[in-house]
């Protein structure tokens, strides 16, 4: 019994250690790879970012609409429906935008990264690169990581913008909130700091989601079942990590 606990703990430590070493390696080489393999990075920005835009835009539109509906229904009771814009805008910019974008990213781009790298491993493509004296971490892993890191803030910006538009459509066009009040209230209440909080979050989430996806893919067991499991784990672990970090960042910013 004690032995099993110890074994599990040691296994955890080993995995954790390997993970930290991998992360350090990725971070250390990232700047050089960014410049020396710029075309590969751009290709991955396209794969992770551009190909995720449709799902991000559709989700943003509806999430913004829902926020406006909920806000309006509650604020109306206090005759404060003019502040619908503040509610929807704050929620989108500081919380919902970065978090939902990260969750959608994990489902759309993270899984693609993990399964692609895992399959390359399962079909010996990574070993073949090793044998051709090309480091797969620099050629395969880091460009994908950077692609994700660059895409996430951009996707978050798209999500939030479309979300605000969605909220506008629902609140102003449908529910009849005064358009001037809607935008002016939001503009007055919103500080640069609030916007920055959202941007910081999107950067952190971009790093987390991309790093976990490439880690899971690179360390997948090279079989069909192993790659499948790595793909699932990517979504699950990223979602949990993003939500925990979201809480920590919000706490850190609010308690300052």
């Amino acid at each position: 019994m004690l032995r099993e606990i110890l074994d599990t703990f040691l296994k955890f430590l080993r995995t954790f250690g390997a993970m930290v070493l991998f992360f350090v390696r990725v971070f250390l080489h990232s700047p050089a790879v960014f410049f020396s393999r710029f075309p590969l990075v751009i290709k991955q920005v396209y794969n992770a970012g551009a190909l995720s835009i449709v799902i991000i835009m559709v989700s943003g539109l509806f999430v913004g609409g829902v926020l406006a509906l909920q806000a309006f229904a509650n604020l109306e009771r206090f005759n404060a429906e003019d502040t619908t814009g503040i509610f929807a805008g704050f929620a989108l910019i500081k919380e919902i935008g970065p978090v939902i974008t990260a969750l959608l990213f994990a489902g759309r781009a993270g899984t693609a990264l993990a399964s692609e790298i895992g399959l390359m491993k399962a079909t010996d493509q990574l070993s073949a690169m090793e044998m051709m004296a090309v480091d797969p971490v620099r050629y395969v892993v880091i460009p994908r990581f950077l692609g994700g890191v660059i895409s996430m803030p951009l996707l978050t910006a798209v999500f939030t913008t479309i979300g605000l538009a969605g909220a506008h459509v629902v609140a102003v066009e449908w529910l009849g909130v005064d358009v001037g009040a809607y935008w002016q209230q939001l503009q007055q209440a919103l500080d640069m700091e609030d916007v920055l909080e959202g941007i910081y979050k999107s950067i952190v989430f971009g790093i987390i989601a991309s790093l976990l996806a490439v880690w899971e893919g690179y360390n997948a067991i090279p079989t069909a079942a192993g790659v499948g499991r790595a793909t699932t784990r990517t979504v699950v672990i990223t979602a949990i990590a993003v939500l925990i970090f979201d809480f920590m960042i919000t706490a850190a910013v609010s308690l300052r």
Partner: peptide, 18 residues
């Protein structure tokens, strides 16, 4: 890596970059 450039290796399934 320099030494590996003197090796050519043919993997079981070819391992072409897809």
């Amino acid at each position: 890596y320099k030494l590996r450039q003197r090796f050519g290796m043919l993997f079981q399934n070819g391992a072409l970059l897809t």
